[in-house]
């Protein structure tokens, strides 16, 4: 998850199966706990906990998936580029570009 930010993501969505419906019994609960840790890290280092979120849905829910993606993408647009990307752009002196999710 952190790697995604290093690779330039402004926001990261983590998709999990429906709670209670995990093929690996409680894999999605563990994932949620791990994600909580990552968001704490992001908060402490000034990137912001709101740039990562977990969504739960089942394999057949294409429309919901699309809705989640556009909802989150809009929120991240609102937040603007991550401090990492800001720093990189400043370093490279290029104008602020597209928001990457």
């Amino acid at each position: 998850m952190l790697k995604a930010f290093e690779n330039g993501a402004d926001g990261v969505m983590v998709m999990g199966c429906l709670e209670g419906n995990c093929h690996f019994v409680n894999g999605n609960f563990r994932a949620r706990a791990r994600l909580a840790r990552v968001s704490r890290i992001l908060e402490t280092i000034g990137i912001g906990a709101e740039r990562i979120r977990m969504f739960n849905l089942s394999a057949g829910e294409g429309a919901r998936f699309a809705a989640f993606v556009s909802e989150f993408a809009a929120e991240v647009q609102q937040l603007g580029p991550s401090p990492i990307n800001v720093a990189r752009q400043e370093a490279a002196k290029i104008p602020t570009g597209e928001i990457r999710v």
Binding site: E6, I45, G46, I47, S82, A87, E90
Partner: peptide
């Protein structure tokens, strides 16, 4: 190691 390395790199890069 991976998690901490990423964290440190991100934090340092964000701080310029």
């Amino acid at each position: 190691v991976e998690i901490l390395a990423s964290t440190i790199r991100l934090a340092r890069e964000a701080s310029g």
